[in-house]
């Protein structure tokens, strides 16, 4: 079971993630967008979207630093062990409620505004529910449980990305953190099949290009 959940499943998710993205980009480039519903309900979006997006961006980079950076490197920066754990918990205590509130507002407006509901596809709801779930399990760890599993999950995650998976590591991890990992990977797998693709469209090229774009007629044919 461990082998399946923490040895095979992560690779299934990551494969779906990469292959799905490539397939979608090639097959339906026209549907690659953020699926904005700004037109239908502005105030709730301004409230929910800013809160959610900023919180989730910091959360994402927090996870990257917390899990993937090798311990040796962290030690060099004097940022290992107890310090690491305390900082992670503190960040989580700030960010988890923000993510929860932001995603909650977004889900509520999707369910309550009839126009937004009419332009909703099932995947929009699934994604939001998974994110809310993540905020719950993550928040539970930060506020209540305080399980010191960061080094274990970190070691496991580094094993996954370096193709040396060690599913046995996850055996001692409490159930809600196992769920956090499983749902997190599920979100990765969902990316190509949902509106989440939009985070690969972060418009950085905008800064480099002139204001006015000219294109010749059949450049894109």
């Amino acid at each position: 079971m461990d082998l399946l959940l923490f040895g095979v499943y992560p690779y299934v998710c990551l494969t779906l993630f990469t292959a799905g993205l490539i397939f979608r980009y090639v097959a339906t480039p026209g549907e690659w967008n953020a699926r904005s519903s700004n037109l239908f309900a502005k105030k709730s979006l301004v409230a929910g979207s800013f809160l959610f997006h900023y919180a989730i961006i910091f959360t994402f980079f927090g996870h990257v630093v917390g899990l993937l950076v090798p311990v040796a490197l962290l030690r060099m920066a004097d940022f290992a062990g107890q310090v690491h754990f305390e900082v992670a918990t503190m960040c989580g205590r700030i960010l988890a409620p923000c993510v929860f509130a932001g995603a909650g507002i977004l889900l509520l407006r999707r369910l309550c505004n009839r126009n937004v509901w009419a332009s909703t596809v099932p995947m929009d709801i699934v994604v939001l529910v998974f994110i809310l779930l993540q905020a719950c399990t993550g928040g539970y760890q930060d506020f209540t449980a305080h399980e010191d599993v960061l080094p274990i999950i970190g070691a496991w995650a580094r094993g996954i990305v370096t193709c040396q998976p060690d599913p046995a590591l996850m055996r001692g991890v409490p159930w809600f953190m196992q769920m956090h990992v499983i749902c997190g990977l599920a979100i990765f797998a969902m990316v190509p099949f949902s509106r989440l693709v939009h985070f690969f469209s972060l418009p950085l090229t905008w800064f480099a290009r002139p204001f006015i774009v000219y294109r010749r007629r059949y450049d894109n044919a």
């Binding site: 469209s201 418009p203 905008w206 774009v213 000219y214 294109r215 010749r216 007629r217």
Partner: peptide
């Protein structure tokens, strides 16, 4: 001097050169 073209972050809007 279109403001829509200038403000499109992904460069989707454009003026045809011809």
């Amino acid at each position: 001097h279109p403001a829509c073209v200038a403000s499109c972050p992904s460069g989707a809007l454009y003026k045809r050169d011809e």
